[in-house]
Amino acid sequence: MTQGLNEIIHAPNRLRICAYLSTLEQAEFGVLRDMLGVADSVASKQLKVLEEAGYVTLSKPKGLGRVKTWAALTTDGSRAYTEHVAALKALIEG
């Protein structure tokens, strides 16, 4: 892959997750799944890859009602996403 491109983030669904999370403090799993337009299992797998890379943290805060999973971009994830976008822009600009 071209220098600076991140193979973990480059996959379309993971790129969309990172782009979405880069604008928020955190997002609920169902919102991410619906934004991607995929099944729970697909969204879960993509988030797991990002979590294992240290790019996303997943949490399940306890409270009233149903426990929901929340995702947030880590500092490393934010940096990797920013570098990936810069590499894409450089590639486009030639």
Results as ranks from 00 to 15, higher is better:
residue 19 A to Q: 15
residue 19 A to V: 10
residue 19 A to D: 14
residue 19 A to M: 11
residue 20 Y to H: 11
residue 20 Y to M: 08
residue 21 L to P: 05
residue 21 L to D: 02
residue 21 L to A: 04
residue 21 L to R: 01
residue 22 S to L: 08
residue 22 S to G: 13
residue 22 S to T: 12
residue 22 S to H: 14
residue 23 T to D: 09
residue 23 T to W: 04
residue 24 L to S: 10
residue 25 E to H: 12
residue 25 E to S: 11
residue 26 Q to L: 09
residue 26 Q to S: 15
residue 26 Q to H: 10
residue 26 Q to V: 05
residue 26 Q to E: 15
residue 26 Q to R: 13
residue 26 Q to N: 13
residue 27 A to V: 06
residue 27 A to R: 08
residue 27 A to Y: 04
residue 28 E to Y: 03
residue 28 E to T: 02
residue 29 F to G: 01
residue 29 F to M: 02
residue 30 G to F: 08
residue 30 G to A: 10
residue 31 V to D: 09
residue 31 V to Y: 06
residue 32 L to W: 08
residue 32 L to P: 09
residue 32 L to F: 09
residue 33 R to V: 05
residue 34 D to G: 03
residue 34 D to Y: 03
residue 36 L to S: 00
residue 36 L to I: 01
residue 38 V to K: 00
residue 38 V to E: 00
residue 40 D to C: 05
residue 40 D to V: 08
residue 40 D to L: 06
residue 40 D to Q: 09
residue 41 S to I: 10
residue 41 S to V: 14
residue 41 S to R: 13
residue 41 S to Y: 15
residue 41 S to C: 11
residue 42 V to Q: 05
residue 42 V to Y: 02
residue 43 A to K: 00
residue 43 A to Q: 01
residue 43 A to P: 00
residue 44 S to W: 09
residue 45 K to S: 15
residue 46 Q to N: 12
residue 48 K to H: 09
residue 48 K to V: 10
residue 48 K to M: 10
residue 48 K to T: 14
residue 49 V to W: 05
residue 49 V to Y: 12
residue 49 V to R: 10
residue 49 V to N: 03
residue 49 V to A: 06
residue 49 V to P: 01
residue 50 L to E: 03
residue 50 L to M: 03
residue 51 E to L: 03
residue 51 E to G: 01
residue 51 E to T: 10
residue 51 E to R: 12
residue 51 E to Y: 06
residue 51 E to W: 01
residue 52 E to Y: 03
residue 52 E to N: 14
residue 52 E to T: 13
residue 52 E to V: 06
residue 53 A to M: 14
residue 54 G to I: 08
residue 54 G to W: 06
residue 55 Y to Q: 04
residue 55 Y to M: 07
